[in-house]
């Protein structure tokens, strides 16, 4: 038996916002430690890794590790039945091929129960090493979102360059070229507004911009996000959900043919 209750049920809605344009179906790995997911996009260029710790839930019970396959388009439809302030309980009986989602209003005056069929999904699991990155930049997630949206109307690829002075996003297209630099800035009162650059070595990599726009759909999960870069390795774009877990996106850089 698997059962887990989230007081802030809309966390799952926010997570789905960031996932559904990248992955249409995925296996959720349920274990006593929590819920995780790893999936590649259809073109196998990007990878998403989600981790929600068991203690992020109000009641968490997982009797045995199990993978449950879900169509994320259908899951997003089901989640429309949940109010933004509703609690959300997920239940999956080991002997059944479905999952039950229960949405309850905080005042306990509305109760919705939806059952959704599970599916068998063949998925390839990749081992992601704990890299030491050449550069890690933390910045407000809204700012990152705005930058990649703005640049995507100018070009298709973005060159990300980190030096001790800051992080520069560059693109070019028919319109012209654009460079946006964010310098390290820790003068604001709120830490969530800070931009910090942790640099081992300067690094410059080029990526398909549309993926960054998709990653930025997780902006509502966290005020801060981080970009971790190493020469000739996939970038890691992370949205941490406090001590509840994280969603991490990996994207292969474009390399010289």
């Amino acid at each position: 038996m698997f059962e887990a209750k989230l007081i802030q049920g809309n966390l799952i809605k926010k997570i789905m916002e960031g996932l559904k344009d990248l992955v249409t179906e995925a296996n959720f790995d349920l274990s006593p430690g929590g819920v995780s997911l790893q999936a590649m996009d259809s073109s196998h260029v990007a990878l998403v890794a989600l981790m929600l710790r068991g203690d992020a839930f109000e009641n968490y019970r997982c009797d045995r590790p199990r993978s449950i396959g879900m169509n994320l388009v259908n899951l997003s439809k089901v989640l429309k039945c949940a109010g933004n302030d509703d609690t959300m309980t997920l239940k999956a009986d080991d002997t059944q091929n479905n999952i039950t989602l229960v949405f309850e209003s905080q005042a306990e005056d509305k109760y919705a129960e939806v059952q959704m069929e599970l599916m068998d999904i063949d998925s390839e699991h990749l081992g992601i090493p704990d890299n030491t990155y050449d550069a890690i930049v933390k910045m407000p997630s809204a700012q990152f979102s705005q930058i990649v949206k703005d640049l995507s109307s100018i070009g298709d690829t973005v060159t990300v360059s980190v030096t001790k002075d800051g992080i520069t996003f560059s693109t070019s297209g028919d319109v012209g070229t654009a460079h946006i630099t964010c310098k390290q800035n820790t003068s604001m009162e709120k830490e969530a507004d800070h931009t910090t650059v942790n640099l081992e070595h300067p690094v410059t990599l080029t990526f398909a911009l549309r993926y960054f726009v998709t990653f930025a759909k997780s902006t509502s999960l966290s005020h801060q996000m981080s970009i971790s870069l190493s020469k000739e390795l996939p970038v890691m774009v992370e949205y941490a959900m406090g001590d509840m877990g994280h969603i991490r996106f990996y994207l292969a850089p474009k390399i010289d043919d």
Binding site: H44, V45, L47, H125, L126, D257
Partner: peptide, 14 residues
């Protein structure tokens, strides 16, 4: 020109 390698070429299968 820059090519786009698959993500699996960077991470080994688990």
């Amino acid at each position: 020109p820059k090519g786009q390698p698959p993500i699996s070429s960077f991470f080994a299968r688990a």
